[in-house]
Simulated scan of single mutants.
Amino acid sequence: MEELYRAAARGAGWAARGAVRLWEAVGPTPDEERDPTRRKERLRHPDRQRPLTAEQLAEAETELGIALPAEYRAFLLDPPKEGGPEEGGPVNPLTRTADGWRWRTEYTIAYDSLATDFPHPDSYTAEDAALDAREPRQTDFPDPAAFDTAYIAWEREAEAFEAAKTAGAVVLRDGGCGFSTLLAVSGPLAGTMWFDARATCDRILPLKKDAAPGTFAEWLAGETPPDPW
C-alpha cells in the first residue's frame, strides 16, 4: 500500500509539471490578456522571449541569485514584438520550467556560478598557457597505466578551467557547431556581449562597438556584429 501511495504521489507530480508546461506553452500571460496581439505574436514566433511581469522577473532573479543587467531586465519586461537581432537567430528566452527559471539553449549554463564575476579572457591567458604546457605526454611515462592516470587528472583540471571561463555569463544565442553568444551578468563586465569561439580559435571574444565590448542594448539594436569575424 505504501508503494501505491508513493506511485500516486509521483504521478501527481508529473501531472503538475505537465500542467505548468502546458500553461507556459499556451496560457496567456497578464500582458497577453491586456493585449491579445502579444499572444498571437508569441504563437507565431514560439522561440521569442515572452514578456515577464515584474513579479516573475523578481522571482527569477531571486532564484538565480543575481540581479540581471538593467538593459536586459528592460528587454525581459517588454521584448520587441517585431525585429531584434534576427540575423543570427532570436534571443534565447528565459522561462519558468519544471526545474526552475532557465534559459532555453542547447548549451550548458553554469547556474551555480552565475554570481561569480565573468572573467575577462585576457585575465587567464598565462594560466591557460601553463595548463597546456602541463599536458602529460605519453613519452614521459614508461608505464601506460601511469600515463592514463596522469592524463585523466589533467583532463579534469582542464575541463574545470574551461567551465570557469563562462562563469557569470548566460547563453543568449546558440550559434551551432559549438559557437554561442554570451551575456555577462556578474562582475565589472556585466551587461556586455561576448562570442564563445573556443570551437575554432580557443578564445572567447568581445562583440565590439568601436573599441569596447558592446552592451546588450547595442547588440539588440544591431550596433555590434553578430560574431567577431
Rank of each mutant, 00 (worst) to 15 (best):
L52Y: 13
G178C: 05
L220I: 06
D47E: 15
P142S: 13
K81H: 01
E218A: 15
T105M: 07
K165S: 11
A12D: 12
T29C: 03
R6G: 03
E32P: 02
L68R: 04
E159P: 00
W194E: 01
P136E: 07
T97V: 05
A16K: 14
V170W: 04
T224N: 03
G84P: 05
E218D: 00
C177R: 09
A167C: 12
T29W: 00
T192V: 10
A58M: 04
R44E: 12
A12T: 05
E32S: 03
L43S: 03
R137W: 00
A197G: 15
A19W: 14
R38Y: 03
A25M: 10
D122E: 15
A9K: 15
L4F: 09
E223S: 10
M193N: 02
G89D: 07
S123Y: 04
R44D: 07
E157F: 03
K81V: 11
P80N: 05
R10C: 07
P213I: 07
D112H: 15
R39H: 09
S180D: 07
G222Q: 06
E63G: 11
M1L: 14
L205I: 05
F161E: 10
G84Q: 10
L183C: 07
R137K: 14
F161L: 11
E127W: 04
L182A: 02
A126W: 06
G214C: 06
R173D: 02
R134Q: 13
E61L: 06
Q138R: 15
E24I: 00
F75W: 08
A199S: 11
A129D: 06
C177T: 02
L43R: 12
P46G: 08
A163H: 12
T29K: 03
L68Q: 01
G168N: 05
D35V: 04
E3D: 12
Y151T: 01
G89R: 14
I204F: 02
D227L: 09
L43C: 01
V171I: 15
T192P: 06
L64P: 07
L57H: 02
P188D: 12
A169R: 09
E41F: 10
A60I: 05
K81Y: 00
K209M: 06
G84W: 06
L77G: 04
R6N: 14
P93I: 11
I152H: 11
G65A: 05
G18A: 14
D112F: 05
G100Q: 14
R44I: 01
G100C: 14
E61P: 04
A133E: 12
H120V: 01
R134F: 02
P119E: 04
A67C: 03
A129M: 06
H120D: 15
M1V: 13
F216N: 06
G175C: 08
R10M: 12
Y111P: 07
A130N: 05
L182V: 05
G13W: 10
I66R: 08
R42P: 00
F141S: 08
G11E: 13
Y5C: 07
I66S: 03
A146E: 08
G100N: 13
P206Y: 07
D227G: 12
L207V: 04
P69V: 07
E2Y: 08
E32M: 08
F141G: 05
E61D: 06
D140W: 14
P51D: 09
T166D: 08
K40T: 11
G18S: 10
R137G: 08
P51M: 10
A9I: 14
D174Y: 02
P36Y: 02
E3W: 08
V185T: 10
A126T: 13
D112W: 08
D31F: 13
G176L: 07
A169K: 10
L131F: 00
